[in-house]
Amino acid sequence: MNAQESGLLLERVFERMVSANKDNDNDHMDFDEWEWPVGVALFALFKYYRFTDKQRYLDFMVSWFDRQLDKGLPPKNVNSVAPLLTLAHIYELTGNERYLATCREWADWIIDGMPRTQEGGLQHITIIADNEEQLWDDTLFMTVLFLAKMGEILDRNDYREEAEYQFLLHIKYLADPASGLWYHGWTFDGRHNFGKTLWARGNCWYTAGVVEYLEISGVSGAVQRHLRQTLETQVKQLVKLQEPDGMWHTLLADPASYVETSATAGFGFGILKGVRKGYLDASYFEAGKKAAEAVISHIGEDGTVAQVSYGTAIGMNDQHYKDIPICPTAYGQALTMMILTEAIEIG
């Protein structure tokens, strides 16, 4: 599939997402909601706009953000930060001071107001629960990438250092030293990794997030080396667990669990971008390419991405993750858009 075909497929996946029937209980997509799945999709759309210069997509994003700001943003939490990563990039394009003011307010909240765990971790607070003393791997992509971006925009070393620290702290408590794969979460209340489950989508937030962080932040020296080594250790194990068709199981080391598209898309994106940017050895390219082909095979004629697991809170055993239903979701569409941007790059 060439770059043009990948772009047309990305547009189909995007259009399916924005045209979803919000009243359909089996259709878990709502592009009017300021939340993390839409945040990931907007970031993928921004990447696509940069490739194509198609004005309609920039206009869509500007209109979407203006409408959201006019009606008022939701309460601040890990997941509601996610759309701001794209807003920060849109600010750089437009110079709209309203966008900058919003981004600055939320970045300051992350520094001064966001609940912390022991050792200063960003507590995984969501609209549903405070999750006291808990670190989740999603936080790096949903919140820390935005903070790192604002550090560059505003030349704020405190933002930069906090983003750097959060990556290091999450690696300390979530990366399994035996396998290199990641646990879903850690709690300082009892000091454990819950069920020690090696859940695929949770893992992919590091794979996809760290390549963005390395590019956004320009972090160097020993910290860059540590982040890249952590990525390579993870990917080395992922390659061993990848199915011949390019997919990964929702429980990475359990072939009895179902294969899952959103995680496969996140892994494929991170691997392909990691190779392209020189963060990973070129020998991993084929694994990323196989992942892209597998994800594409799960896109329906109408743009619906199949074989995606529903939202998943931390569980205390593997069965919790096996029991999560499969259904179309906004983040399934969004992560598919992310890997398609890399398919365009390798064209």
Score class of each variant (00 low, 15 high):
residue 301 E to A: 11
residue 201 R to Q: 09
residue 314 I to G: 00
residue 123 Q to H: 10
residue 21 N to L: 05
residue 152 E to H: 14
residue 92 E to S: 15
residue 85 L to E: 00
residue 25 D to Y: 10
residue 142 M to V: 09
residue 236 K to I: 00
residue 93 L to K: 14
residue 130 D to F: 08
residue 288 G to Y: 02
residue 291 A to W: 00
residue 61 M to Y: 08
residue 263 A to I: 06
residue 261 T to N: 09
residue 134 Q to V: 13
residue 242 Q to P: 13
residue 332 G to D: 04
residue 124 H to N: 13
residue 89 H to C: 08
residue 319 Q to W: 15
residue 302 D to K: 13
residue 286 E to L: 07
residue 216 I to G: 01
residue 309 S to Y: 02
residue 256 A to Y: 11
residue 130 D to S: 13
residue 307 Q to I: 03
residue 76 K to Q: 11
residue 180 G to K: 07
residue 277 K to H: 13
residue 80 S to C: 15
residue 128 I to E: 14
residue 335 L to N: 02
residue 26 N to M: 11
residue 329 T to V: 11
residue 284 Y to S: 04
residue 337 M to T: 02
residue 271 I to A: 04
residue 142 M to Q: 10
residue 154 L to R: 08
residue 273 K to G: 01
residue 327 C to K: 15
residue 257 S to Y: 04
residue 320 H to E: 09
residue 1 M to Q: 06
residue 63 S to W: 06
residue 213 Y to S: 00
residue 160 R to A: 07
residue 283 S to G: 10
residue 270 G to R: 03
residue 67 R to M: 12
residue 186 W to T: 02
residue 32 D to I: 05
residue 199 W to I: 07
residue 223 V to P: 00
residue 274 G to I: 02
residue 74 P to V: 15
residue 86 T to R: 01
residue 318 D to I: 12
residue 279 Y to A: 00
residue 186 W to A: 01
residue 279 Y to H: 11
residue 283 S to K: 15
residue 91 Y to V: 04
residue 296 I to E: 00
residue 310 Y to E: 12
residue 132 E to T: 14
residue 199 W to H: 10
residue 138 D to S: 14
residue 243 E to Y: 14
residue 333 Q to L: 12
residue 318 D to M: 12
residue 24 N to V: 06
residue 339 I to K: 02
residue 347 G to S: 14
residue 251 L to Y: 03
residue 104 R to K: 15
residue 72 G to S: 13
residue 141 F to N: 02
residue 156 R to E: 05
residue 228 R to G: 02
residue 207 T to E: 04
residue 56 R to L: 14
residue 225 R to T: 08
residue 124 H to T: 12
residue 224 Q to D: 03
residue 157 N to Q: 15
residue 91 Y to D: 03
residue 1 M to W: 04
residue 323 D to S: 15
residue 322 K to I: 08
residue 69 L to R: 10
residue 71 K to D: 05
residue 241 L to V: 08
residue 260 E to C: 06
residue 114 M to L: 12
residue 29 M to N: 03
residue 85 L to Q: 00
